[in-house]
Design a protein around this nucleic acid. Structure first.
Lengths: 252, 252
DNA sequence: TTTGACCTTGACGCTGCGTCAACTTCTAGC
DNA sequence: GCTAGAAGTTGACGCAGCGTCAAGGTCAAA
């Protein structure tokens, strides 16, 4: 028994283009090639195609399927790995749903859903940076913490951050010295504010790493262009940095 | 305040390539274009970019985002539609997980996980065809029914289908007439077998549509190349068709 | 022999950028 | 003022998995 490309395609519920594609990428060659160039498929090819389509329906990529068919990988293990990947995908979509719902709620409450730039390091957006700066664990914990808050709690946190920024800006404009008592109290407030977030060294009582983190946060104000918009001039950012560093050196 | 492309990119946690892309596709143009061709972005552009990134993080496509920003679509409605789409995606992944788990079980039980071709019309693979032939409802119901069965039940169903095919083949080879009593009893058994599946007209007691369906199933044996492999020759398929049609005409 | 269905090989399109390549322009230190 | 290096620009290809023409050769039935 032998089938033409269209017959096999109809039988399998796919198009002939797909079969040509599989031929081209080496996934499924026809069992016979006519003198006219026509592709003919026998039972063995049909069986192989069925395995391919089975795996494809399960969402596997063609290279992965090719690997399995080449028996480089055990089929059971391949499927198990695939289940794990699917579960992760489902969880990702779950999180997205929660996130969009949250956004919608915030919009309906008349609040800007965009998180404040001072949250840098504590949301998904800055995930990579947080991980590289404070480790995977810190991201996981702080991210879960943030998403576990109610909208009201998030608003309170946002308000606190805005108050803090306003205080910093006012002090900078007033020409206060970074080592003055006022600057130190602002820095203390800043550290206090940061230590609310679980996963940070400060929250975990790790003094050595807390000091490093506070210094690092100070540097970010000057070095990181994402913070550039927060102050009218570079001097403001430098003031915050210097105040935080002085605090870290002498009060922590 | 104004930023260069790199500054804005760093601020937003994306690359300059992305910003150029957004410019090219008309999603976000720079607020100013230098005489040297450099792109400069102001606060308005930053705000627009933040809205873009917010929506993108929610998984929306760029054209959809552009629509929202063009205010052709209400933002709330857009998000609600997006939530619905995400929920559907999550459910789809859910179903996939169940399907793969099922496949793995079947493999471990030493059973071929590929459903029998006689199930055509009652599994995902033939979804489009079932829907076009018997409607969306039939697909939903029969698909849920199939996936709700245990492995043992599926195996029993599969065995019954194989017995039925064997009986048909034997009768065809024996040269039985399609209108003979033997052929009629086989047809009755076939209809009985099909009526187990909820969602079919037969199972739902719709006599008119049952007759149509049985005739249609008969036609499929001859017209549909997916059934071609079930019998050694075209005569076998024609025998099954004729027997089913005779049964539908006289006994239903 | 014609007609229409089916076969072939290109080649572009889609999504959202990543990643060279080749070239110009700005910035900072000497 | 010079020069190095960082940053800017516009192409253009690549990715996954085919869909979808285009242009032409082949086959089966009337």
């Amino acid at each position: 028994m032998e089938w033409t490309i269209q017959e096999l395609a109809a039988r399998a519920g796919i198009t002939s283009r797909t079969l040509r594609h599989y031929d081209r990428v080496g996934l499924l060659a026809p069992s016979r090639l006519g003198a006219n160039g026509y592709r003919y498929y026998d039972l063995g090819a049909v069986a192989r195609l069925q395995r391919i389509l089975l795996m494809r329906r399960l969402g596997m990529g063609l290279p992965a399927i090719a690997e399995v068919l080449a028996e480089e990988v055990d089929e059971h293990d391949g499927l198990r790995a695939h289940i794990a990947a699917l579960e992760e995908e489902r969880d990702r979509v779950e999180r997205q749903i929660r996130s969009v719902r949250h956004t919608l709620e915030a919009l309906q409450a008349g609040v800007e859903p965009r998180m404040d730039v001072m949250l840098a390091g504590f949301n998904d957006h800055y995930k990579d940076e947080v991980i590289s700066r404070w480790g995977e664990h810190a991201f996981q914990v702080s991210n879960d913490w943030w998403h576990g808050k109610t909208l009201d709690q998030q608003l309170a946190w946002k308000q606190a951050s805005e108050d803090l920024v306003a205080a910093w800006v006012a002090a900078a404009k007033a020409g206060v010295s970074p080592t003055s008592e006022h600057a130190r109290s602002l820095a203390a407030r800043h550290v206090q504010w940061l230590s609310q977030v679980p996963g940070t060294p400060t929250a975990e009582g790790d003094r050595e790493r807390s000091i490093e983190m506070v210094k690092g946060v100070g540097d970010m104000f000057v070095d990181d262009p994402r913070f550039a918009g927060m102050y009218d001039d570079a001097a403001g950012a430098m003031f915050v940095r210097d105040a935080l560093q002085a605090y870290a050196r002498t009060r922590m």
